[in-house]
Amino acid sequence: MKVLTVNFLTCAVKACKTSPLSFPLHFQDAELEQSDIEYNPSFLRNILPRVDWEALKVTANELGFTTVPAEKPNPAPTPTNPDTNPTETIKESPEAQPADDKVMRDLHTLLLETEVREGKMVCGNCGHEYKIKEGIANFLLPSHLV
C-alpha cells in the first residue's frame, strides 16, 4: 500500500463516519519497502493540492520520515492548456515560490516509492485495526461494525 493512498482513507466503521479522529489511520508494526519509480514532477504538482498536509505529516512521522516540511510546498506552475497555448502558464502571486526540487524529490520518495508491505492501520476513534498483508489492506468489516 503506497503512502499516498493512505492519505485518502478513513475508518470504515459506521460509528466513525462523523468523528475527526477517524482520519488519518495510524500505522503500527509497519514493514516498509522502497521501490524505484521514475521521478514525475508533473504528477506531484497535480496531486499536492489534493493531499491533506496535516495527515501526511502524522503518517510520515509514524513511519520515521523526517523530511516532510511544516508547510505544504507551492508547486511550480503548470501550463493551463498545452493544446491551445503551450507557452501560457498559471499566474502566481509574487510571494509564491516554486517548491524546492529537493523537497519535491523527498515527497516523491515518501508518497510514491514507499510502500507498507505488512502491518496494520488503526483508527484513532474506535481502535479498529485494518491488517496489511503483502501490501494490501483488508477493509472488510465484521457485520456488527457495518
Rank of each mutant, 00 (worst) to 15 (best):
T109R: 10
H108R: 00
A96Y: 12
L112N: 11
M104H: 09
D100N: 13
R105M: 10
V116Y: 00
A96R: 15
S93E: 13
Q97N: 12
L107G: 00
V103S: 04
T87D: 15
L111T: 05
L111A: 02
H108W: 11
A96P: 07
D100C: 00
T114A: 00
R105P: 04
D106I: 02
T114C: 05
E95M: 10
E113M: 07
A99Y: 02
Q97W: 06
P94E: 12
V116F: 01
T87N: 14
L110W: 00
E88G: 06
R105S: 08
L111C: 00
S93M: 14
S93N: 15
Q97Y: 09
D106R: 08
P94Y: 14
Q97L: 07
L111D: 00
V116L: 02
H108F: 04
V103Q: 09
D106G: 06
E113R: 14
D106V: 06
L112W: 02
K102E: 13
T114Y: 06
P94N: 11
D101M: 12
E92P: 09
E115M: 02
S93P: 11
K91V: 12
T109A: 05
V116T: 04
P98S: 08
T114D: 03
M104N: 07
L107P: 08
L112M: 12
R105L: 09
E95P: 09
L112F: 07
L110D: 01
A96E: 13
V103E: 06
P98H: 07
E115H: 13
Q97S: 12
I90H: 13
D100G: 10
H108T: 00
E115D: 04
A96G: 04
P98I: 01
E88M: 09
